[in-house]
Amino acid sequence: MILASNSARRQEILKDIGFNFKVLPADIDESSDREDLIEKIKDIAYKKAYHVAKFNRNEYVLAADTIVEINGEVLGKPKDENEAKIFLKKLSGNWHRVITAYSFINIERNILINEYEISEVKFYDLCEEQIEWYIKSKEPLDKAGAYGIQDKGRIFVEKINGDFFSIMGFPIAKFIKNLKELDIDIEKISKI
């Protein structure tokens, strides 16, 4: 299998379950002209997977994309520390949605899974000192919404509704269910 992503979190989730894969990030423009937010995220995940799959037609290729959305505003990866601070202040004390879409493609076998998972996260009220401490760690700078639930950012999370691993970057349980629907049993995942 090829993982069309550099995400350390996705790699960790897949390795922990037993997948063998090589990493071949899709170097594409991660934008979409779709109007609907979920369709937009699914489209980006598909474009990443297809970009790698068209050069590896016999391989299974997996790609994903994660965004954080609050009150209709998408919070991607912050461009700098100042934007990270703005994002964290918006999330402070509020519920937000984390949407992760993924595409799994094998062109030769005519396989396409294009799915998504939505989870909700509620943050505690954050004080300025907590935000500054977190920004100094540099963790928020490469994460959608400027936080990682699996890292230091976990201390901000009051509640979640949904899939923890989807919030982390990949809904592994749903993906395994998709594979089972294709008659790929969990014992076979190291071979795909």
Rank of each mutant, 00 (worst) to 15 (best):
M1K: 08
M1T: 11
A4H: 04
A4V: 05
S5I: 04
N6Y: 06
S7L: 11
A8T: 11
R9H: 13
L14S: 04
K15A: 10
D16H: 14
D16S: 15
F21P: 12
K22A: 03
P25W: 04
D27W: 02
D27P: 06
D29V: 15
S32F: 07
D36N: 15
E39Q: 13
I41H: 00
Y46H: 12
K47S: 13
H51V: 03
V52C: 07
A53K: 11
K54Y: 11
K54S: 10
N58W: 05
L62N: 01
A63W: 04
A64L: 01
A64V: 00
I67C: 01
E69P: 00
I70C: 05
G72K: 09
G72D: 08
E73Q: 13
L75Q: 05
L75C: 08
L75G: 04
G76M: 06
P78Q: 01
K79T: 10
D80R: 08
D80L: 08
E81L: 08
N82F: 14
N82M: 11
A84Q: 01
K85H: 03
I86R: 13
F87C: 03
F87H: 04
F87Q: 07
W95T: 03
W95E: 06
W95D: 02
H96T: 04
I99N: 00
I99S: 00
I99Y: 00
F104K: 01
I105D: 01
N106L: 12
I107R: 01
E108H: 11
E108W: 01
L112A: 03
N114I: 02
N114H: 03
Y116C: 06
E117P: 01
S119Y: 11
V121E: 04
V121K: 03
K122H: 12
Y124G: 02
D125H: 14
D125Y: 12
E129K: 15
Q130S: 15
E132S: 14
W133E: 15
I135S: 08
L141T: 06
D142N: 12
K143T: 10
K143H: 11
G145W: 09
A146E: 02
G148L: 11
Q150H: 11
D151I: 04
E158A: 10
K159A: 08
N161T: 09
G162L: 13
F164L: 14
F165V: 00
I172C: 07
A173E: 03
K174W: 07
K174G: 05
F175E: 02
F175M: 06
K177W: 14
K180I: 13
E181Q: 11
I184R: 06
I186F: 15
E187Y: 15
E187D: 13
K188T: 12
S190D: 12
